[in-house]
Design a binder for these strands. Structure first.
Lengths: 156, 156
DNA sequence: GAAACTAATTCGTTCTGCCGAACTAAAGAG
DNA sequence: CTCTTTAGTTCGGCAGAACGAATTAGTTTC
C-alpha cells in the first residue's frame, strides 16, 4: 500500500472521529433542549424504531429495574411524549406508545441538519452519492457491532 | 431533479440517521464501560481536543456550577483520568490535564471500530475515499452548526 | 497598600433517579 | 379450583451529583 493511500485511510478515520464527536454533541443538545435524560432519549429512540413496547421490554433495553421503568414511563407520560395502552392480548401487560404529535413538534430542531445535508448532497454526482450511501450504511453496521462488543449483545 | 435523484438523497438521510443512532449507542457503551457519566465524558472530550483547561473554562463547557466542576474534577482525578496542575501565569488558577496514559489504556475499546473501518476502506478507490472524506468533513461541520443552533454558541 | 475583584474550593442542603421488597392483578399449570 | 408464575406498580430508602453561600488565596486597580 502506498503511503498516499495510507494517509487517505488515516484521513477517513480522522473525519469519522470528528463527525462522531459532533454527532454526540448534537444528540446531547437535542436531549437537553427537550429536557430529556440520556436514558429517556434512549427509550424514546427504541420506541420510535420498534413501535410500542411493554415496560418489561424497556427493562431490557434500558438496563433499568422494573420499578425504575415505571418511574421513567411516568416521567415521559407527564411530558406528553408517551402513552400507556392496554395490551390487547394480555391484561397484565401495558403498551408504551410514542405520541407522534409530540415527536413531530420537535421536528424544527432537526430542520437545519436535514436541509443542510440535502444541500450538501447537491454537490455530488449520483455515483458519488451511491458511494457515500454505501459507506454510511457499512459504517453504521460496524459501529453497531463495535457497540455490541463492548456492551454485550443485549443493550445495543 | 429526477425522482431517482430524490430517493438517492433520501437514502443518504436515512443512512446518516442510522449511523448517528449507532454512534450515540457506541459512545454511551464506552462511557458506561469506563464508569463515566455523560458530563464526565464530555469534559474529557474537551480536554482531549483543546488541551489543559481551567475549572472556570469547564464551567462554561459543561454548563455546571463552579462547585460542581470541582466535584467533577475530583471524581476524574480519583479515577486517574486527569491531573491538576498549577497555572504557570496565575497562581489562583488550576490547569486540568488529561492523563494520556490512562486514555491510551482505553484504546482496546476502539480497536474493533478502527480496524473494521480500515477494512471497509479497502473496498474503495482513492477517488471514492476522497469523496467519502469530503462528505464526512462537511457533515461534521454542518452537524456542529446544527448543535450550536440548538444550544447557543457556547457549549458546542 | 487598601479595596475590589476573580479563581477555586469547602460545606451543607436539595434534588433526581435508581433500587429492593412488598403488593395487586391477571394468566397459566396441575 | 387452587397454586404458581408473570407484569406492572407503589413505597421507603438511599446514593450520586448538582447547587448556593461562605471561604481562602491570589491578582488587579487606583
Amino acid at each position: 500500500m502506498s503511503s498516499e493511500r495510507a494517509s487517505l485511510v488515516e484521513e477517513v478515520l480522522l473525519k469519522a472521529r470528528e463527525l462522531s464527536t459532533e454527532t454526540v454533541m448534537f444528540h446531547t443538545a437535542i436531549a437537553d433542549q427537550r429536557g430529556l435524560s440520556a436514558v429517556e432519549s434512549k427509550v424514546c429512540d427504541y420506541l420510535a424504531r420498534l413501535g410500542p413496547l411493554t415496560p418489561k421490554d424497556l427493562t431490557g433495553y434500558s438496563g433499568l429495574a422494573p420499578a425504575s421503568v415505571t418511574a421513567l414511563v411516568d416521567r415521559l407520560e407527564g411530558k406528553g411524549l408517551v402513552r400507556r395502552l392496554p395490551h390487547p392480548a394480555d391484561r397484565r401487560k401495558v403498551l408504551i406508545e410514542l405520541d407522534l404529535a409530540t415527536v413531530a413538534a420537535a421536528a424544527p430542531l432537526w430542520d437545519h441538519i436535514v436541509s443542510s445535508t440535502v444541500r450538501l448532497c447537491e454537490r455530488y454526482t449520483d455515483e458519488q452519492l451511491a458511494t457515500v450511501i454505501e459507506f454510511l450504511g457499512e459504517a453504521a453496521k460496524l459501529t453497531h457491532e463495535s457497540a455490541e462488543m463492548i456492551t454485550g449483545p443485549l443493550t445495543g
